[in-house]
């Protein structure tokens, strides 16, 4: 029988190809051709492979004839008298595999466990700034409606240069000279996944309360971001936020159409 037409072989080929794609092509192949990428976490690969396996099974069992020929080798191996040797090997191999996987799961390892850290935790409705309560919900940047924008940006620039550059970098890409020492690394403001996703009040909260102010779901908060409320004034923080958005070219997230258009 032609091996290439054998459904179970086709299924195996698809699975191996999918694994190679997820593990090696995305993780190591793409950087070779200049696309920024990184090895895919094991949990994600597991998830992807589960979906592919389900897809393969759906395909081969959707048609009666195909399902029969898919199952034929399995049935043959389990029943035909002349397949005794492969059958015996399978009977040994399957428990050994299960044992190996169990061993892998329970053996002691030195790596820290995988952690679930929400990168954008929910902000509290209200925070205190040096003891003074501030309602975050619906809070707009007060400097956007007062004073001269040039002055705000100039102030923000000087504050950013003095306080933020060491970690977030002079190009705002999170590549400051301290950055490699930190895990998690400082936020990359040039990424479309950070500033445009957030309202200014959210950014304000993150600057004011820093890493120590992260809620539980944002933990383990080994974030090195200081709580700036003790160092900067409110208007300075707001000016820095304006500067951040102005410099990166992003607009803050808003929830009202009218305001969205105003920007």
């Amino acid at each position: 029988m032609n091996l290439r037409r054998q459904p179970i072989v086709q299924a195996a080929v698809v699975l191996v190809a999918a694994y190679v794609l997820f593990e090696y092509v995305i993780g190591y192949g793409l950087p070779l051709v200049g696309v920024s990428s990184a090895p895919v976490p094991q949990t994600v690969i597991l998830q992807y492979m589960a979906i592919v396996i389900v897809g393969v099974l759906v395909y081969f069992s959707a048609d009666e004839a195909r399902w029969k020929s898919f199952m034929q080798p399995v049935r043959d191996t389990l029943t035909l008298p002349d397949r005794r040797v492969p059958r015996g090997l399978l009977m040994v191999a399957i428990p050994v595999m299960a044992g190996w996987m169990t061993y892998q799961n329970v053996r002691l390892s030195f790596g820290a466990p995988a952690t679930l850290r929400s990168i954008h935790p929910a902000p509290p409705g209200e925070i205190t700034f040096r003891g003074e309560p501030i309602t975050l919900t619906g809070l707009e940047n007060p400097l956007r409606s007062s004073g001269s924008m040039e002055e705000h940006i100039a102030l923000g620039r000087s504050i950013y240069t003095v306080n933020c550059v060491p970690c977030h970098g002079d190009r705002m890409d999170g590549e400051g000279h301290f950055a490699p020492a930190f895990n998690p690394v400082p936020a990359d403001f040039t990424s479309g996944g950070v500033l445009p996703q957030l309202t200014e009040s959210f950014v304000f909260w993150r600057i004011v309360k820093g890493g120590p102010g992260l809620p539980t779901e944002g933990t383990p908060w080994d974030s090195a971001m200081p709580a700036w409320e003790n160092i900067l004034e409110q208007h300075e923080i707001w000016a820095t936020i304006i500067y951040l958005y102005e410099q990166t070219g992003f607009s803050p997230r808003t929830w009202h159409e009218a305001e969205g258009e105003a920007h």
Partner: peptide
Amino acid sequence: VIPQVQSAVP
């Protein structure tokens, strides 16, 4: 099996 996050009462 996913890491468990419980939302504690402040």
